[in-house]
Design a protein around this nucleic acid. Structure first.
Lengths: 192, 192, 192, 192
DNA sequence: CATGAATGAGGTTTCATTCAT
DNA sequence: GATGAATGAAACCTCATTCAT
């Protein structure tokens, strides 16, 4: 922990505490002591309390994007690329408990700005291209991007939601079941 | 507005303001003046500020349940029952702007309790039965309840999320597209 | 209880609750419900909350005075008259738990007025006469009234204080011991 | 005043104001401005308002104990030791107006705890020993500790009570009178 | 650069009192 | 007369932010 920079320690402390208690139930003083810095120090790195979570959101979304794109082979079927990316995101949310919960809370807050939405769009470009490829190759039906995006993100978020509230256990079987239904829903049925 | 009871006015004012500004950015004094009552009056009807939102959540979930079950004919195909209920929920979330946003925020907050999850389960019993019926009639594949529930709620929430953030426009076409993908994903393909 | 008038019920409820919780920890609403009347009703009988305790104090001091003078034979020695009155007061304080505690709190409060002191003086006139009689009869030493009054009231209050705080048990033996010391302290020693 | 620490200033302001107006008639804001600090500062030093008076009571009782034991020669008669200690306490109460009144109010409040009584007992050990010495030396009669303690404290408190309510003037003559009665009451009469 | 004591605005909540019924 | 719902002033307390060290 102490190998991190002060700024990183502040951000991580904020992430942890906000996730556990919520933004307004986490005083700056609590963040300071969790991070092992003076309260005033926080204001050297961030304009105010809100700026911490905004920067946190940026960093986490960047990480999430990297995690999403990781381990995707150059040559891969549309089906598998969908699956791998979908699993990458799910894994990130599940393995990075605080980050996952944080994002869920952040996007549900009334402070979410148009910018955030725009950024998300920008980061989803690769998904848009994947869909186009699938349609061109006649592997998935010619449905609107939004339709598919709703499926991908909707199931991801709901799985995560049930997971963090301990309503389900995420097993490989469940994962495969859900992905199969997803793929069956969008693929072209070549069988005659 | 003034035909409502004081308690209803307080609850509605809270719903509106919290949805717009968030729980902690909505002082009790603001709720009081929006509701047209004295600040102290609120404490005749609710133990404290938090109790308002808990009761709000209860009331809204009851309403949502009623809306879900409305207009479902006695005799109806599994496909159509799924569709009608799914649309009912979506309509409720979209038509009742404040209620919809409120629920989204509430379930994402770190205060969501096990009780909430349990209540949700209880209210989803009808969905469980519908799935059993579909499987027995060989209309949908024999998949786990959770798999289907994740689909239903995941797509609903994501559509709603994109809607309230003005990222998409919800058209009949989109609705049908999405539902078709959902149904194609779970139905049994009788074609040979 | 319900045979009493409303005013008496209000006063008794106040006496009980204030004694147990203190003046400011006893809301008028609590007094109302303990007395079995509406909160507004209290203001028909008393100008405000403070007026209740002032009237209570008056009533209790009147009662205390009557109790002090009770059962004193016409013809009685100075020693016995002292003793009987002293015991009468002690008994009143001990038997009437709420009244005793109330008076203790009231006289220690910063609101005690000169009037209260004056009233006390007035009610102690009989004690002054008793002392004069004792001196004239050469049964007690020629000491100042205040000296003896300090003794009487000081020991009484302290016994009561220790009693209500359960620091001592008031037995006949203790009573006699204390009174003996008192009497030995003021009597004329006729032995040569 | 400004040479004291902030904590001391807060405590002294509380002592003064509470003594004059009573605990509940003294808002924290009033204490803050009397002490010359911000309202929030008080909560850096004390958990809440009540904690101030509890700590005040502790400090004052420690001071009182020290004052009680001051200026007592190593070799001193039982009579004189009683007298000196009794006078020390009386002087403390009279000279330290606020402290004296504060203690009177505090011990009469309904919040006085068993702990307080226990503490008092502990601090009275020296008195217990003095009584034992007096009895062993056959200077005072073999009376119960409580009997004598009731006398000491009862007269002290009553003198103080009359003093702060301006009902008497405390003169050396009165002091001697009262002490003489006390001593006559407990000493062994060696004259035959 | 870093600190954390100090601040005071503003939060939630209580409660004496009023007044329409 | 009696009620108790309603009020809003004022209480206690928290905490984001500043600034002297």
């Amino acid at each position: 922990m102490h190998t991190k920079t002060k700024k990183e320690r502040i951000m991580y402390a904020t992430l942890k505490l906000i996730t556990e208690h919520g933004f307004h139930a986490t005083p700056v003083s609590m963040i300071a002591s969790e991070a092992g810095v003076g309260a005033g120090t926080i204001y050297r790195y961030f304009e105010n309390k809100e700026a911490i979570i905004n920067e946190l959101y940026d960093v986490i979304l960047k990480e999430l994007h990297e995690a999403t794109m990781a381990n995707i082979p150059e040559i891969i079927s549309v089906r598998d690329e969908f699956f791998l990316k979908w699993r990458n995101i799910l894994n990130y949310f599940i393995e990075r408990e605080y980050e996952g919960k944080f994002v869920s809370q952040y996007v549900a807050s009334p402070f979410i700005s148009r910018t955030v939405i725009y950024e998300t769009e920008r980061r989803n470009v690769h998904l848009r291209k994947l869909i186009e490829r699938g349609i061109k190759l006649n592997e998935i039906r010619d449905v609107d991007y939004n339709t598919i995006a709703v499926y991908m993100w909707g199931t991801l978020k709901q799985l995560h939601y049930l997971h963090i509230n301990k309503a389900i256990e995420i097993t490989d079987e469940l994962i495969n079941d859900i992905y199969t239904v997803f793929w069956e829903g969008i693929r072209v049925h070549h069988d005659k």
